Amino acid sequence: MADATTKPTPLLTPTQDDDGAPFWTYAARGELRIQACAACDELRFPPRPCCPHCRSFDSTWRKMSGRGRIWSYVFPHPPLLPAYAEQAPYNAVIVELADAPRIRLVGNLVAAPDADLNSVAPERLRIGAKVQVVFADVGGTVVPRWLLERP
């Protein structure tokens, strides 16, 4: 359980397998990269060993602009984990990437990279709102978060 001086760890510990580990390595560097097929150039997320389009096992990681738009959002009630109760209500957003509209990432809309999950008032969230990725170290894991482009 988190106290006033300790922020909770991420909801999920990232999978450090051969397919997903590069995503987290790039995130730790402050880069948003998405796996792409080296054969047909299709982007895919979540990362996986085989391209669902051409079935190639060759992949690369393409740097994204980090821009997107809120595709959907929710305010979980009650919080998903007890450690997050003090920050409720907080948002969980699905962001559609501007460079790759078929790629959607889950995260939180925050006022600053290291801000609490409830740092943006619920009435400020809108489907279609433009956002920009930022990265924050949360409990030893660097995770992508999102800021409104026009606060």
Rank of each mutant, 00 (worst) to 15 (best):
A2R: 01
D3A: 05
A4R: 14
T6Q: 13
T6E: 09
K7S: 13
K7Y: 12
K7F: 11
P8F: 02
P8C: 02
P10S: 03
P10N: 09
P10Y: 04
L11D: 00
L11Q: 07
L12F: 13
L12Y: 13
T13K: 14
T13W: 11
T13A: 14
P14C: 04
P14R: 01
T15H: 13
T15Q: 14
Q16C: 09
Q16G: 08
Q16I: 12
D17I: 04
D18N: 13
D18Q: 13
D18I: 13
G20D: 13
A21Q: 13
A21L: 12
A21R: 15
W24T: 06
T25M: 11
T25N: 12
Y26R: 08
A27I: 06
A28C: 05
G30P: 05
L32Q: 08
L32T: 05
R33V: 10
R33W: 09
I34T: 04
Q35R: 03
Q35E: 14
Q35Y: 03
Q35D: 02
A36V: 14
C37D: 06
A38S: 15
C40P: 11
L43P: 03
L43A: 13
R44C: 07
R44Y: 03
P46H: 03
P46T: 04
R48E: 08
P49L: 12
P49H: 14
C50S: 13
C51V: 03
P52M: 06
P52T: 06
H53L: 11
H53E: 12
C54S: 04
R55W: 15
R55G: 04
S56V: 09
S56K: 08
S59K: 07
W61N: 04
R62S: 11
M64F: 06
M64V: 00
M64S: 07
M64A: 08
S65N: 09
S65Q: 01
G66N: 00
I70V: 15
W71R: 12
Y73Q: 10
V74D: 10
H77P: 09
P78Y: 01
P78V: 01
P78Q: 01
P78L: 03
P79F: 00
L80A: 12
L81K: 14
A83D: 14
Y84F: 15
E86F: 06
E86W: 09
Q87V: 12
A88Y: 00
A88Q: 04
P89W: 00
P89L: 04
N91V: 05
A92T: 15
V93N: 03
I94E: 12
V95E: 02
L97F: 05
L97C: 03
A98E: 15
D99L: 05
A100M: 05
A100H: 01
R102H: 14
R104S: 04
R104T: 09
L105G: 02
G107R: 00
N108D: 00
V110K: 03
V110Y: 07
P113C: 07
D114H: 11
A115L: 06
A115K: 06
D116Y: 07
L117C: 14
N118L: 03
S119V: 10
V120K: 06
P122N: 07
L125M: 10
R126Q: 15
I127Q: 12
I127K: 11
I127M: 15
G128C: 03
A129W: 07
A129S: 11
A129T: 08
K130T: 14
Q132E: 15
F135S: 07
F135W: 07
F135D: 05
A136Y: 01
V138P: 00
G139E: 02
G140Y: 00
G140W: 05
P144G: 02
L148F: 15
R150M: 13
P151L: 11
